[in-house]
Simulated scan of single mutants.
Amino acid sequence: MAAIGYARVSTTDQDLDIQLAALKAAGCNTIRSEKVSGTTTAGRSELAIILDFIGKGDSLVVTRIDRLARSIGDLQDIVRTLKAKGAILKATEQPIDTGTAAGKAFLDMLGVFAEFETNLRRERQMEGIAKAKAEGAYKGRPSMIDPAQVRALKAEGIRPAEIARRLGIGRASVYRLLEPQKTTPTSDG
């Protein structure tokens, strides 16, 4: 019976030290960690390793469930995987222990709130972008393509596919730049 720790932060500039210390203090001899978004379990290789090798009587230990999953669906999938293997989930900063009925109930409640928080953050971000666009402050990513260079290569008789290859851009971008500009008729009325 082993206590296996899992630590995660979303970005490379965030620090894992506090989580690692808490997991060591909780008795975890094996700790896997990664710096990757928690909005999905896809691409989280360290978590996948733990879920592959965890066994009967083992505990997956995290500091908080938001380190493990940000959606109730992913959280439930992880808990189901652990249960099928005879393992349990525990959190050091929350009263979560899926070996108990109260711990399971609390886990479900926290999972719902973690997903809610993620959705609120996404909504606020989209509202901020919409406001910035309306104020003219958000213009998106600056263009990486020089239209004059595309037109110059076309004037030399080079085909669009070759222009795209030479400039390292998509063919659709070349065609878009080479389209005749549509003008709207004006009336002097």
Rank of each mutant, 00 (worst) to 15 (best):
Q94S: 04
F53S: 15
G128I: 06
I49Y: 11
Q19P: 00
G111K: 03
A155R: 13
L75C: 08
I50C: 06
R151W: 02
V79E: 10
V174W: 01
G38T: 07
K131M: 14
L167F: 03
I169K: 01
L60Q: 08
V62S: 05
A48H: 08
R70H: 03
D97L: 10
T92M: 01
F113S: 05
A161D: 10
I72T: 14
E46Q: 15
I158N: 00
G86D: 09
T98M: 08
A148Q: 09
Q181Y: 08
T39H: 11
D52M: 08
T118P: 00
G136V: 10
E127Y: 05
S71Y: 02
E46V: 04
G136L: 08
A69L: 09
L51S: 07
L60M: 09
L75F: 08
K182Q: 12
A25I: 03
T63N: 07
V112M: 13
T92H: 01
R165V: 02
A134W: 06
A164S: 04
K133E: 12
D108M: 14
T81A: 11
L107H: 05
D66F: 00
L47Y: 04
Y175P: 01
D108I: 15
I65A: 01
S173W: 06
T183F: 10
S59Q: 15
F106G: 01
V79D: 11
V62L: 04
V9Q: 00
R141M: 09
K182S: 12
D66Q: 02
K35H: 04
S33C: 07
Y138T: 05
A84D: 15
L23K: 03
M109K: 07
I49E: 13
I65L: 15
K133R: 15
R44M: 09
E93N: 13
R121E: 10
K35G: 04
E156R: 13
N29L: 13
G57P: 04
A7H: 00
T118H: 12
F116K: 13
K104M: 15
D66G: 05
R44T: 09
P180M: 07
K85E: 03
L153E: 01
P142T: 15
D108C: 10
K24P: 03
F116H: 15
N29S: 08
V150Q: 00
G5R: 02
T11M: 14
L47N: 01
L20P: 02
L177E: 13
